[in-house]
């Protein structure tokens, strides 16, 4: 992030600002691919901004810029100092500053996506940073992962299980994953995706669009 972000703070109640969506999950599960897919699908109709949190490079931001799914000025990278988790939960200052900078430069926006650096199953976003959060797993981590739970799996507003195309290759049973997810998540939704097969992530994008619409309805 740069030192010259504009000075502006939003009201803590969220009135008049964009929906802030956190995307978290383990390393390599497809968070950046999902963010790119959301930009691709929602970009034509929604005003978007993206904040990435890389661990020691700006790789994710660079990937998104090169993917050409969003005007590159609308993508800001935040460096998180050895602790991706801290930057989304305990000390959200840099991320919040980046989110507000995007809103001030390009606003009014409908949606700002904050992508966490790859972390473990305990990663969750602070309510002070994200209004809604998606946790992304992939089948190649093993079909036991949803059963293991953890705050990301159990409490995220949406659980996405990605790379379903790999399930036969890694011996992952999608039915087991669906059943275990439902057991730990109750009524909260789970969506299975293969972003490689569907680069628009249609089902996830539809869920996000619903969240944006109800946010705008409540806060504008």
């Amino acid at each position: 992030m740069s030192a010259d972000h504009d000075d502006h703070h939003h009201a803590p109640d969220g009135h008049g600002r964009a929906l802030r969506l956190g995307v978290g999950g383990p390393v390599g599960s497809g968070k950046t691919a999902l963010v790119a897919a959301l930009c691709r699908t929602l970009g034509p109709t929604l005003q978007l901004g993206v904040v990435t949190n890389d661990i020691y490079t700006t790789e994710d931001a660079d990937f998104l810029r090169k993917a050409g799914v969003l005007d590159e000025d609308r993508i800001l990278a935040v460096e998180t100092g050895c602790c991706p988790h801290t930057a989304i939960r305990d000390d959200i200052a840099a991320n919040l500053d980046a989110v507000e900078t995007l809103e001030n430069r390009f606003g009014p926006l409908h949606l700002v996506i904050v992508e966490s650096g790859g972390d473990n199953l305990t990663a969750t976003f602070s309510r002070g940073l994200a209004d809604k959060q998606i946790f992304v797993l992939d089948v190649s981590g093993g079909d036991k992962v949803p059963r293991k739970g953890g705050p990301g799996v159990t409490t995220a507003d949406l659980l996405v299980i990605n790379k379903t195309d790999l399930a036969p290759l890694v011996g992952a049973d999608l039915d087991v994953m669906a059943k275990d997810s439902a057991a730990v998540r109750g009524d909260r939704p789970v969506l299975f995706t293969s972003i490689r097969q569907d680069p628009t992530a249609a089902a996830v994008a539809a869920w996000v669009r619903d969240q944006v619409q109800s946010w705008l309805h409540q806060h504008h």
Binding site: E79, G81, T86, A93
Partner: peptide, 12 residues
């Protein structure tokens, strides 16, 4: 150091 003011990301 737990004050949420971004200090954790700097090593001086």
């Amino acid at each position: 150091s737990r004050l949420p003011a971004g200090g954790h990301a700097h090593s001086g």
